[in-house]
């Protein structure tokens, strides 16, 4: 596996809680830490793992990699590598929904490191100005790469409160409780679908691994104790499991079975990815131009590629 890899482990309740509220008209787009969102919209582990391995069977045919998973058939529009670059795109998805008269919304995910980019602020202004059904979900895991929130952003109450300047409704809540995530996000979805108005949600969360493979040990800018404390006390999956066990909805055996099932599925995905074919050299030049792929008259007119 090469290139970039930004793991989502620790933030699961955010993607699952929010995306589980979507229906067939709602659209989803995110940044580069979107493996969780891809699985939540229903991409298979096989398709995701094969993409990480750069295989032709990957969800983007091995052309996008870790940061660029796509599944438009599941209303999932990527997977975008440049911080906050997806925020105007999410705006556009919402614009298209409203233009077509569809009562859907767009969930646009970004990290706490994205909130200082101009594209995000331009998006907030346009979202409010044009009453677009977009929900910006700031997954605040407290570190933009190795720079803590305190060293990167100024704010009064919280990052989401900056939305007040754009007359946008905002909310901030804890992302370790999936029920809380769903309940609070639902209000924003209703607002988007029915008014329509945008929202900014800031969801407190935590990532266990480094920003990417570049700081896989992740110990330079935060203590091992901090990570351990989150794993023990704030892990969203463990907390949900505990609650389901206490409520008698889930048994310990069932939980263990689900764990094993997921591990087996992941192991099978690795096997699938390893055994899958690589894209061929000729595949370099497909998926660049629509008309060229289809060899229409337009696609056969003029020179498109300038290889030696």
């Amino acid at each position: 596996m090469g290139g970039f890899l930004h793991l989502y482990v620790g933030q699961e309740a955010v993607a699952v809680g929010t995306i589980s509220l979507c229906d067939e008209d709602d659209q989803i787009i995110g940044g580069y830490r979107t493996h969780g969102h891809a699985l939540a919209v229903g991409l298979t582990m096989n398709a995701c793992m094969a993409e990480l391995f750069g295989k032709a069977t990957g969800c983007s045919k091995g052309k996008g990699g870790s940061m660029h998973f796509f599944a438009p058939d599941k209303n999932f529009w990527g997977g975008h590598g440049v911080v906050a670059g997806q925020t105007p795109l999410g705006l556009g998805l919402a614009f298209a929904l409203k233009y077509k008269g569809v009562k859907g919304c767009c969930l646009c995910f970004l990290g706490d490191g994205a909130v200082n980019q101009g594209a995000y602020h331009e998006s907030l202004n346009l979202a409010s100005l044009w009453n677009l059904p977009v929900i910006y979900i700031v997954e605040n895991n407290r570190y933009s790469m190795g720079t803590s929130l305190q060293r990167s952003s100024v704010y009064r109450k919280c990052l989401a409160a900056r939305a007040e300047g754009y007359d946008i409704e905002w909310d901030r809540f804890n992302g370790e409780d999936i029920y809380e995530v769903r309940a609070r996000t639902w209000k924003a979805i209703q607002r988007a679908r029915h008014e329509p108005r945008p929202s900014v949600l800031e969801i407190a969360t935590y990532r266990y691994y480094g920003h990417s493979v570049s700081d896989a040990n992740a110990k330079k800018y935060r203590s091992p104790e901090e990570i351990e404390r989150h794993r023990k006390l704030h892990d969203p999956i463990q907390l949900w499991q505990k609650r389901l066990l206490e409520e008698g909805i889930l048994t310990a055996d069932q939980a263990a079975e689900m764990d094993e099932g997921a591990a087996a599925e992941a192991a099978e995905a690795v096997r699938f990815a390893e055994e899958s074919p690589l894209p061929q050299k000729a595949d370099l030049f497909s998926d660049v131009y629509y008309e060229v792929d289809r060899q229409t008259r337009a696609g056969r007119t003029g020179r498109y590629f300038f290889n030696d």
Binding site: Q27, I29, P72, W77, G85, T87, P88, L89, G90, L91, G92, L93, A94, F95, A96, L97, Y99, K100, G118, A119, E122, S123, N125, L126, L129
Partner: peptide
């Protein structure tokens, strides 16, 4: 009419084109 906000409205155009506009 868009405000003076090229990154915003060009990105919006790209996003809207993904849904067929």
């Amino acid at each position: 009419d868009a405000p003076i906000s090229e990154a915003g409205f060009i990105g919006l155009g790209i996003g809207a084109s993904m849904l067929g506009l």
